[in-house]
Computed example of a mutant assay.
Amino acid sequence: MTKSHSPRIAVVIPAYKVRSQILNVIAEIGDIVSSIYVVDDCCPDDSGALVRAECLDPRVHVIRLPKNLGVGGAVMAGYQAAIKDGMDIAVKIDGDGQMDPRYIVSFIEPILAGEADYTKGNRFFNLDSLDQMPRGRLLGNAALSFMSKLSSGYWDLFDPTNGYTAIHCEVARHLPMKKISPRYFFESDMLFRLNTLRAVVVDIPMDAK
C-alpha cells in the first residue's frame, strides 16, 4: 500500500434471501472497516429494505439492483461502489452468517503488506475442521480445485469455490467486470481474470462452516 493515509477497508455483502441473518452479520463487522456495501440482488424478501429500516450503522450503504444478477454481478456492483468512494481494499463476505467477519483482518494483512493483490479463504488448511463438510461436497471441491488450477494457472491455491475474499481496489479497477461469470463459476472465473492481470493471489486459512 503506497498511500500515506490509513487504509480504507470496505466490505461487500451480496444480499439475496438473507433477511434473517444479514443484520447479525453487519453487527459483527469490526471498526477496521470504513464502509459496508449491502448489495440487494433484487431479493424477493427485500433484504436491502430491511437493512435500510433497521440498521443504524452509518458505514452501511444499500445498493438495490433492478434485476437479479447473481453473486458475481452483485459483487461487481459492490466493487464499483467501493472504487468510486476511494476505498483501498474490498472484502467480500456472504450475508448468510457462514463467513466469520473476525477473519477480515487476516484477509487484508497480506494486501496491506504488499504481499498479495487478492486473498481468498482456504477451508482445506485445517483438516480437522473438514469434518463439518459433507463428503460429497469435499470430493466435488477437490475436482473443482484441479480444474481451476488448470484454467487459472494458480497451481498453489486450494478451495477455488470459497467466496470469502479480499481485493486491492486498484486491481479490481482493471477487472473486466462485465465479462466475469455472474453466477455459479464466479469464484473460479475471478481467478482466471486475476491471472491475466498477473495478480498475486494468496490463500488464507479458515475453518469450514
Score class of each variant (00 low, 15 high):
residue 3 K to L: 10
residue 154 Y to A: 12
residue 135 R to Q: 12
residue 85 D to H: 15
residue 107 F to Q: 02
residue 49 A to W: 01
residue 58 P to Y: 03
residue 135 R to H: 07
residue 95 G to A: 08
residue 18 V to N: 03
residue 129 S to P: 05
residue 146 F to L: 12
residue 72 G to C: 05
residue 103 Y to S: 14
residue 108 I to P: 12
residue 155 W to C: 14
residue 35 S to R: 13
residue 29 I to M: 08
residue 147 M to W: 14
residue 179 K to A: 10
residue 99 M to Q: 15
residue 107 F to D: 00
residue 143 A to W: 10
residue 200 V to M: 11
residue 44 P to M: 04
residue 175 L to M: 11
residue 84 K to D: 07
residue 155 W to N: 15
residue 83 I to V: 13
residue 32 I to P: 04
residue 61 H to F: 11
residue 183 R to Q: 04
residue 97 G to K: 02
residue 80 Q to G: 15
residue 8 R to Y: 02
residue 101 P to M: 10
residue 54 E to D: 15
residue 125 F to P: 01
residue 48 G to Q: 04
residue 7 P to S: 13
residue 1 M to N: 02
residue 182 P to N: 08
residue 62 V to G: 05
residue 150 L to G: 04
residue 43 C to A: 09
residue 98 Q to H: 09
residue 36 I to Q: 04
residue 178 K to E: 10
residue 76 M to L: 08
residue 21 Q to V: 03
residue 13 I to P: 07
residue 134 P to V: 08
residue 35 S to H: 09
residue 83 I to F: 06
residue 202 V to S: 02
residue 44 P to V: 03
residue 159 D to G: 12
residue 203 D to T: 10
residue 19 R to K: 13
residue 11 V to G: 01
residue 24 N to Y: 04
residue 178 K to W: 08
residue 51 V to L: 11
residue 173 R to Q: 15
